[in-house]
C-alpha cells in the first residue's frame, strides 16, 4: 500500500511516498523499518509507544492503535505535528 512520509523522515526513504505492506499498522511499520532501517525507532519508542508529535492517518482517519488492521488498498499517511522554536 502507499505510505506518505513526512519531511523529517525523508532522509530515510528518499521519497515522499513509498510502498510497504502489513496486516496491521504495527506490521506496516516493521516493513517500513526493514526497507528503511532506523525509521521505526524514530517514530515508535522502545516501549512500542508513538513518540510525541507523531500521528498516523488511514484513509484520512486518525488512528492511535498499532494493532489497527490494514487493507492492501488503504492509504497510510505518517504526519508530524511540527512545533516549537
Amino acid at each position: 500500500m502507499k505510505v506518505l512520509i513526512p519531511t523529517p523522515l525523508r532522509s530515510y526513504t528518499g521519497a515522499r511516498e513509498v510502498d510497504a505492506s502489513g496486516a496491521t499498522m504495527g506490521e506496516l511499520l516493521t516493513d517500513l523499518d526493514r526497507r528503511f532501517p532506523g525509521l521505526r525507532f524514530r517514530i515508535i519508542d522502545e516501549q512500542d509507544r508513538m513518540r510525541a508529535h507523531m500521528r498516523f492517518f488511514i484513509n484520512g482517519e486518525q488512528v492511535f492503535d498499532l494493532a489497527r488492521p490494514l487493507r492492501p488498498t488503504d492509504e497510510v499517511q505518517i504526519v508530524q505535528a511540527l512545533s516549537g522554536g
Binding site: P8, L9, G38, F41, R42, I43, I44, D45, R51, A52, H53, M54, Q80, A81, L82, S83, G84
Partner: peptide, 8 residues
C-alpha cells in the same frame, strides 16, 4: 535527536 523524532 530532533524535537519531533526519537533519539539516535
Amino acid at each position: 535527536k530532533t524535537g519531533h523524532l526519537g533519539p539516535t
